[in-house]
Amino acid sequence: MAQHNELGKKGEQIAIEFLIEKGYSILEKNYRYLKAEVDIIAQKADVLAVVEVKTRSTDYFGNPEEFVNPKKIKLLISAIDNYVVEKDLDVEVRFDIIAIIHKKEITIEHLKDAFLHF
């Protein structure tokens, strides 16, 4: 497996542990719909958190969350629309980004309602 793929998988595991620690239930990991893949679908109370995890080894080229582009956002929205209908859920949906910088120390930033800023 390529080094960036390993870093991404490590980041997703860190994000899952972080969310569980914050009281979220993990419903899905790597949910796929058409061309979209949702890293994590989690729930806390009546909020469905759709989480895109971005992991980098450095912030030299920018913060991890800056690498979520409008095309990715559109794919995530269509995937979660399908998920909510498929599971017949009545929840508030929120799109979050968990940005992780994995150097000597791990820095985690949880950006709630992240797509409102795009």
Rank of each mutant, 00 (worst) to 15 (best):
R94Q: 15
V50S: 06
S78D: 13
Y33S: 02
Q13F: 12
Q13D: 13
V84P: 00
L27I: 01
V84K: 00
N69F: 12
E37C: 07
E17V: 00
T58G: 09
K29L: 14
E21W: 03
A15N: 05
I16T: 13
E109A: 04
Y60K: 15
P70H: 11
L89S: 06
D90W: 07
K87V: 05
D59I: 13
R32I: 10
A99Y: 09
K104N: 14
I41Q: 07
F67N: 11
K112N: 10
I26Y: 02
L89I: 11
V93G: 02
I40Q: 02
K29H: 11
E105C: 09
H110C: 00
I41D: 10
A99V: 05
V85F: 11
P70D: 14
R56Y: 11
G23Y: 04
D39L: 03
D81H: 06
F18M: 01
L34R: 13
D96T: 04
V68D: 08
Y31W: 02
K104Q: 11
L27C: 09
N82Y: 02
A36Y: 00
K29R: 13
K112R: 09
V38Q: 13
F61Y: 14
V38T: 15
I108G: 00
P70E: 14
T107D: 11
A36H: 01
D39C: 02
Y31N: 03
D46P: 05
V93W: 02
I80Y: 02
L89A: 10
L111K: 13
D90M: 11
Q13R: 13
I14S: 07
E12A: 09
Q13V: 04
E17L: 00
